[in-house]
Design a protein around this nucleic acid. Structure first.
Lengths: 258, 258
DNA sequence: GCCCACTCCG
DNA sequence: CGGAGTGGGC
């Protein structure tokens, strides 16, 4: 099974890149974040024409998640299921090949000391409770998406200068560690232990890509029984180099299942 | 000499179409209307890279005219020259091969009985005075551009239903006739006397192009000594069928001069 | 329908 | 820098 994740930063603006990537890479599953589109306007037709099923939930302008899959998902669920009706569309789960795939767009957090930062940490905590309530670490489970956290010094272009900034802050590292401690393996790092590779380069930094001023914010994690079956994981830079790119690019992993 | 006119409806949005057309057709002169760009942002570089000189005057969001030419223009002038500082960028004249080329974006007129309609008729009158003041009908002169008037019943898709609408109104016909009476020949009609061909199809009419619900609003006119030297004139539909088209397309004419 | 300006956001 | 929304114009 080949699975990928991509923060599209607007699925409508990114449709050429996504369609070309699906056509070329033919993943079994592609998880998308920041689709930035209401459900009525989700561009399902061109995606279905490539043979993919679409599960999605979005809103105007912000957030929005989708899971595209060759097989129809066995089950789809949205959000934490804790009755919060004001919840933003950031969490979508689809069970495919009997594996629950938890696709998350973790809040960005704006700035430490801000309400948005506290919301981010709380959101990660709620996600932890969600895993505890609904899943077990000894059963195959995938957690993928834009986690908006670079876990280690190797995952940002300037670990000393950026320490304490949003996305590379001790509180975020602690929250992420707690989630991993429950039972997640970073599948990318399992295969690329020492490589300084990024998945995000800020549009606002001039020439961030050629200067490689990036962050590894997008992740594929799996519970141990599934992580053990991963055979490969990589970051595909080419969509970040294309015309009209997202500020993120694709992370991909392959598993020996089915 | 090969000369063309095109209402770009935003030169920045239309740059691929314009560059491709210049490359393929290699006109001596291309007159543009509705460039919708301030002079500082005019995309001169890619045009100059194709070997064209650029004369232009524009503003934010509306109006804007340009004359692209292989030879540097011998003289360029803007506006009626009657001291109206609030004048919109709708009139640009470049003298090339000793022929003054008057490029106009005539006001659209909104609706009969409106202030904008009266402004349109006044503008055409001012243009008449301008021709009288600065030119003579027995000397070569070109008047091209988006005149926002379909002169004859043959020039609109529904002459009965549209009679009295903006662009096909008796007052406009009268104003245009007066201008022609001074000394202009419709160069397109000189070569295509009976053909029902259009240069504009409204974006807002569904499938206007395949249903051919168009108007002939864009024109190339010449004083008699020059019109006699015209060898060909045609409308090039292909840019209207391209990706991301303008709502207008190119009108082209060739003259035996030089 | 599509272009452009402006604003908000990251 | 570049999404997306809104509003005006044709």
């Amino acid at each position: 099974m080949k699975i990928a994740t991509f923060n599209a930063n607007g699925i409508r603006a990114r449709l050429p890149i996504i369609l070309e990537w699906l056509d070329k890479e033919s993943p079994d599953v592609l998880c998308l974040q920041e689709t930035k589109v209401q459900d009525v306007d989700f561009p399902r037709e061109p995606i279905e024409n490539l043979g993919y099923h679409c599960a999605f939930r979005g809103q105007k302008a912000y957030n929005g998640v989708a899971i595209l899959s060759k097989r129809p998902p066995e089950k789809v669920s949205l959000g934490f299921g804790d009755g919060d009706v004001s919840e933003e569309p950031r969490l979508l789960v689809a069970t495919i090949n009997n594996i629950p795939i938890v696709n998350t767009y973790v809040p960005q957090g704006y700035a430490p000391e801000s309400d948005k930062f506290r919301y981010k940490l709380e959101w990660l905590q709620r996600l932890g409770s969600y895993f505890v309530r609904y899943f077990q670490p000894d059963i195959p489970l995938l957690w993928v998406g834009d986690l908006n956290v670079a876990p280690e010094p190797i995952d940002v272009y300037d670990p000393k200068g950026l320490l304490g900034h949003v996305g590379f802050h001790p509180d975020e590292h602690e929250a992420l560690s707690a989630l991993k401690a429950w039972g997640f393996v970073d599948v990318f790092r399992r295969h690329e232990s020492g490589s300084k590779m990024y998945t995000f380069w800020d549009y606002r930094i001039p020439n961030a890509v050629p200067r490689n001023l990036g962050w590894r914010l997008d992740h594929i994690l799996a519970t141990p029984p599934l992580a053990q079956k991963s055979t490969r994981a990589w970051i595909d830079m080419s969509p970040r180099l294309a015309n009209k790119p997202s500020d993120h690019t694709f992370v991909v992993a392959e598993f020996e299942v089915d």
